[in-house]
Nucleic acid binder design. Structure first.
Length: 468
RNA sequence: GGCGUGGUGGCAGAGUGGUCUAAUGCGCGGGAUUGCAAAUCCCGUAUUUCGUCGGUUCGAAUCCGACCCACGCCUCCA
């Protein structure tokens, strides 16, 4: 069974197959590194991560490229405001982004090109477009793509005659000299506020336009025609439309064969926005006591083609779910004879039988239906919990495969060792209980709680855990 | 205004013509257990019901139409 995904270009489900028969070339529009990415950004990246995992775990290798936008209006403006060089500024936020990705258990793309490191490739692309008559230099010194010269424009977003319906309010100073409102910048002429962040080109000093980097870098690493391109739904127009135009006008071949877009995350029923104060970052949620794996769980709990309403309540639901899975994993691990956990790479090549977890994986292959996959996982979990002896040894690897596909890390059960002072209190309480001194016992339990530990009585003893 | 998505139980969220008296999770209620709890386990949890009104069909949450509502995109944006 192949992975199928909704293709924006054809508005239909398509099999994801590598054109070269070997591996899928996969390009994702990455973050602009000028601030911490918010959970909306991460919804998209997490979905793309699951896409890659599902493909790899079903035996198809993926070459994953995700760019870093490290030169644009925002990075330049904010770095200047903060008195930092563009390089040190974007390096800082890149590092922050990588830390968040690691915390959220995102596989690192094999290639993560930065726009500023690929100026030459972008200039080359502009030159080829100029040579073919698809681009022109305007009076302001900037170079624009002539949308009119590319008849297929609008095919992805199904928007015709954009320039007729676009209001003039959006027109800003640096776009004044375009022949048509829908023409977009390939090269932006240097302006005083750019500071030192300008590069030499055949059209004078300046910097590349935003859309260009993705074309230049995706084609550099994946070739002029590749398999899959993905991004947030808002990128469909104009970003991806422009990418297609400038790439195909240049090469004459299909740019990406398939496109999929992730619908936006909502918070408390509304779009995230600064004014509503609902733009969470991972760090902010961690400060509220949530764990990254819980955030990941909450982000994948809805289908990627629908709005997902992210709330703190939805985050809270993640913890008991993950704990339940951790218990299930422990049981299956035991049933399997406590083997070493197979690595992700080993699972991709060995592709073990999944037992009761097969329907969950199949749900994933069908347009990344994560909610249904989770439902299937819990259905299997319920069966095994009801009849623990019915668990088969191979179901351990089955569960591991689905957990890897979803990228879910499970909490370790009872892994935290209590400090001596805490254990001493617990010992006192054990003694009090032995003497049936319930008053003292309860008092000690309160004391422990105040110190951040919860105590659970078990046969002949106790277990200590940090408060949830 | 143009384009688009969706309205399913307290919440989240599957289900896209019959097996739906609607998956799954959270929550909630009850029980077991416990000195009392916690943790764990068990049971129950949408009173033909899936925004409203019509239509197609032997049969619809699923198809069609109208309407109401919510949300998104329309060159900053995952």
């Amino acid at each position: 069974m192949n992975l199928r995904i909704h293709d924006t270009l054809t508005d239909s489900l398509q099999d994801v197959l590598p054109a070269d028969g070997k591996r899928v070339g996969f390009y994702c529009c990455g973050p602009t590194v000028y601030a911490a990415a918010h959970i909306g950004n991460f919804r998209t990246f997490v979905v793309q991560d699951i896409f890659r995992r599902a493909l790899e775990l079903s035996g198809t290798p993926v070459k994953h490229v995700r760019n870093l936008t490290n030169v644009d209006d925002k990075t330049i403006r904010v770095s200047q405001e903060q008195g930092q060089s563009l390089g040190e500024f974007t390096a800082f936020w890149t590092e922050k982004f990588h830390a968040d990705c690691e915390a959220l258990n995102l596989l690192r793309p094999q290639i993560e090109p930065g726009a500023v490191e690929h100026i030459a490739e972008q200039i080359d692309l502009i030159q080829r477009l100029m040579d073919k008559g698809h681009a022109y230099q305007a009076g302001d010194g900037s170079v624009y793509f002539r949308v009119e010269s590319f008849p297929a424009y609008g095919r992805l977003s199904r928007v015709q005659d954009r320039e007729l319906t676009t209001g003039t309010a959006a027109q800003s100073d640096d776009e004044y000299d375009r022949d048509s409102l829908s023409d977009f910048a390939l090269w932006k002429a240097a302006k005083p506020e750019d500071g030192p962040n300008v590069w030499e080109s055949p059209w004078g000093r300046g910097r590349p336009g935003w859309h260009l980097e993705c074309s230049a870098m995706s084609m550099k690493y994946l070739g002029p025609s590749f398999d899959v391109h993905s991004g947030g739904i808002d990128l469909t127009f104009p970003h991806h439309e422009n990418e297609i135009a400038q790439s195909e006008a240049c090469t004459g071949v299909t740019f990406s064969r398939l496109w999929f877009h992730v619908v936006h995350l909502m918070v408390d029923g509304h779009k995230m926005s600064k004014s509503l104060g609902n733009m969470y970052t991972l760090e902010e949620l961690q400060a509220k006591g949530f764990r990254p794996e819980e955030v990941r769980y909450a982000l994948i709990a809805g289908h990627y083609r629908k709005h997902l309403n992210f709330t703190l309540a939805s985050l809270e639901a993640a913890r008991p779910n993950l704990q339940r899975l951790a218990k299930l994993e422990k049981h299956l691990h035991h049933v399997a004879g406590s083997p070493k956990r197979p690595s992700y790479g080993a699972l991709c090549t060995s592709r073990p039988a999944l037992g009761r977890f097969a329907p969950a994986f199949e749900a994933l292959l069908e347009n990344l239906n994560v909610p249904r996959a989770l439902g299937e996982v819990f259905k299997a979990a319920g069966e095994i919990e009801k009849a623990p002896q019915s668990a088969k040894p191979e179901e351990y690897s089955g569960l591991i495969v689905i957990l890897e596909a979803l990228g879910l890390r499970l909490p370790e059960l009872g892994a935290v060792e209590a400090p001596g002072e805490i254990r001493a209190l617990a010992e006192q309480r054990l003694e009090a209980r032995a003497n049936k001194d319930w008053g003292k016992s309860d008092e000690l339990r309160d004391q422990l709680a105040a110190l951040g530990w919860s105590i659970k009585d078990v046969k002949g003893g106790y277990e200590l855990e940090p408060n949830a």
